[in-house]
Design a protein around this nucleic acid. Structure first.
Length: 271
DNA sequence: ATGGTTGTTACACAA
């Protein structure tokens, strides 16, 4: 009989909308909520511009940074050892939208994704950005259909798949992030990859869950017009290791000073 | 029904 020592770790994902501008609230978050691994999207800087020293100070000495000038960019920072693994090729435009790592010696692989937002017009024939988003999803579907198990997918998927992942299903059916082609494709590829959507697992499907609120509202709390764009999925074989009750969407972070329009989401898992 | 904000960058653009 071989015994495996399990360690519970906390994994968080946050679209930070410029890590340099918001490094202060990132450090506040790390100090208060102490995830072992934080996956960031929209770091909006090149690798050499990433504020590594700030993360080092707080013990996040393992980093995988995939930045680019000005736009997009993702990073994984960790207190526990992680090692970079080949990122799947989901982006036809070679943007920095994916970082992949193996956790520990024999832990699961984590994919930190920033799916293209897709522009305003939900028609790939007239909107290249929407075509890019659909192509990205198509590549995800093909990859995850053939690579099962021991994988955690996190990030800003820029799609709110369910009726109660948006403030108004009817109003948003033709709005990019909630169109049927997006929501159906995302659900199909998730199921094809045998992933569990942690936020919706064992939750009432009628419970409204949001992780993003637009900047274009004088008071985001007034009408609460949010969408659940940020996700944590785990391979079905990892589900028994997940502490479902630990799942958190840190809504309060939307009210922090100079906030991102997204808030951190986290879950704890034994590895 | 429309327009509303933000960050990076360079004098728009993506979100």
């Amino acid at each position: 009989m071989v015994f495996k020592t399990m360690t519970k770790i906390k994994i968080a994902t946050w679209n930070i909308n410029s890590v340099r501008l918001r490094i202060g609230i990132v450090k506040d978050y790390l100090n208060q909520f102490a995830p072992d691994i934080l996956c960031l999207q929209e770091i909006k800087c090149q690798n050499e511009e990433f504020p590594s020293a700030d993360f080092d100070e707080l013990g996040y000495k393992y980093k995988i940074i995939n930045g680019q000038k000005g736009w997009h960019g993702v990073a994984i920072v960790s207190k526990i050892p992680i090692s970079e693994t080949a990122a799947p090729d989901f982006c036809m435009n070679s943007h920095s939208r994916i970082a992949a790592a193996k956790i520990g010696e024999n832990g699961p692989t984590i994919h930190n994704l920033y799916v293209p937002a897709g522009g305003d017009e939900p028609d790939p024939a007239i909107n290249d950005k929407f075509a890019h988003k659909l192509d990205f999803l198509d590549r995800m579907e093909k990859y995850y259909a053939q690579n099962h198990g021991d994988t955690i997918v996190v990030g800003d998927l820029n799609i709110a798949p369910h009726e109660h992942d948006v403030w108004s299903h009817k109003s948003l059916l033709n709005v990019v992030s909630h169109t049927p082609i997006e929501t159906e494709t995302l659900e199909r590829l998730r199921k094809g990859g045998k992933f569990i959507d942690i936020a919706r697992h064992e939750r009432d499907e009628k419970e409204k869950l949001y992780s993003w609120w637009s900047y274009r509202a004088a008071d985001w709390t007034k009408n609460n017009k949010g969408r659940r764009l940020d996700h944590i999925w785990v391979s079905d074989n990892l589900l028994p290791n997940v502490d479902i009750t630990s799942f958190q969407i840190l809504r309060d972070a939307r009210s922090w000073e100079k906030p991102s329009d997204h808030v951190p989401c986290s879950v704890e898992i034994e590895i």
